[in-house]
Structures are given as C-alpha cells and as structure tokens.
Amino acid sequence: MHSHDAYVGIGSNVGNRLSTIESALVQLAKLGDIVAVSSVYRTRPWGRTDQPWFANAVARLRTPRSPFALFRGLKDAERLLGREPGERWGPRVIDLDLLLYDDLDVDEAGLVVPHARMHERAFVLVPLAEIDARFDALRDALGAANLSGVELLAPAPIARAARAVGESETAMSDEVGTLGERIRSLAAVFADEEVVRAKIERPGSEIELRRSANRQRSSPDSGGRSGSSEPGRLDTIKADLVGIFHLSRPTPAQGESFESDRELGYIEALGIRTPVHSMGGGRLASIAASDGEPVEYGQPLFVMARG
C-alpha cells in the first residue's frame, strides 16, 4: 500500500530546534513510514538574513497518501507544532516542505513539486544527498561558497540505518520529546542487518520496527547471512563524558569484525583524550556518532553485535 516515495524538507529557526525537528518526525510518521532521516544541519538563513540560524533536515517517507493529501497533512502538522501564518522568509517554528513525490511534476493549487529552486539550496541538497546518492552531483555543483553556510549540527544514526530498513511501523504517543530519541536509538539498533524486528515498550506507548522479508534479501550487505533471523546480542557503547568524538586511526569500518578488544575512537575533553573501546570482540554493527562532532553524556557511539 505504501507505494509512493516522498522527500520532505524540515526547517526550524525558533526555540529548541532539535527538539522541534524530533517532534516534526513524530508527526511525519503519522503520514507514512519514515525510511530515512538525514543528519540535522545548522544553516544560515536564506532570503532575509537578519534572523537566527536554521536547523534543517530531510526525511524520506513511504506514503499511501496522494500528493495533495500529503501536502495538506504537512500543513496540518506545521500548525500542530506551533507554526503561525507569518511573512515569507521570516523566522518560523517549523517548516515542512514537500520536496519530491515519486517522479511527479506538478504545479497547481499551491503545490509545486519538485519544490521550486530546491536544486539551488544548499540547506536542502546537503541533507538530501546524505540520504540519497542521486543528489550528490547536484550538491557538489553548488560550490564551496554555498556549502559553507551549512554545518553539521546533530548526526542522525537513523540515516545510516535506514538504508537497510525496508519498512518501519511505528505506534505513536503524544510524548514527543523522548519519542524522537527512542526512534533514533531503535534505528541505531536496526543498523545491524541481522535484526529483523525491534520494539521499545513504555507505559502508554510502544514503537516497533520490522524489516520486510524482500528488503532483507535485496540488501547487498546482508549477503549469504540473510537466512538468519535470530538477532545477535547488541551492545551500545555510549559516551561517558562530554567532549569531541573522534574515530581512531585506522578508521574502524561498519560491518568489520574483530576477535578481541579494540580502541574504536576517543573523546577529547579539556585537552585529554579518553579512548572508547569495543569492550571485547564482535562485529561493529554501527557507528552512531560523527567524527569530529560534540557528544553528550550517554550518547550512543558504536553498536557492537556479539557472539
């Protein structure tokens, strides 16, 4: 049923932007299945430049909705998240733009798809190229001057995970603040191709992600192991201090296996490097943090599959 492929641009430049974007993802999940989310980028405002910086991201949806139904759904979600009608290019709590919808080309009744001028906006193309390599060339065509206005703000492990996730099913509650995090941590777990089904339950809400059978077979990484349906034991290695995260050299690769304990990265804080170890042997299922970016206490850094 979820036969349409849509890309939605998410932007915010008022208040706690990261938390707003997480709330927006929860609303998007009601309009279809989120199959990929880019990292969140800090970007210079476009048009009116005398306003605060934006946080921008792009999400990819599988949706049963028609383009107009999806467009209306996005406008409703904007209102629900506190957007008020305001001037064009002005500050906004939340901006949800329908960028692409299958191969559709439409311009009527206020809906323009593909989104006008998205091909010249770094704040769209950088996150878009992150989750869909077809846009790499367009992004690179923008040149360094344009791209310098876009910096990584919060890396999104879900983007990496989503390449392997065929289908996700989410049961949503109204508890938006923590939900985004739960989705992200689920996605980090799901980065391991051997995981077929994962679920987080809490009083009042639950989230479940399930990998579809045909996706699993078509995933190039899963190779001959696709028959395996038993999930391995997964350990998430988290930051135990605040600092800048770095991958150790030689850089560990996602999917790489090692027999014994190995230093995977380190956190630099107050001039001191604290190594992060794999805590024993296993397969590195996911690198959940970005090299050179700040990490907070308890932030997932690596997911190790044991046994």
Binding site: R17, G177, V242, E296, Y297, G298, Q299
Partner: peptide, 10 residues
Amino acid sequence: VRQADEAFCV
C-alpha cells in the same frame, strides 16, 4: 531542556 536553544546531557 526544552526551552534552551541547545541542551547537553552531562
């Protein structure tokens, strides 16, 4: 945590 522009767990 919600009201600040950014928030870090320490």
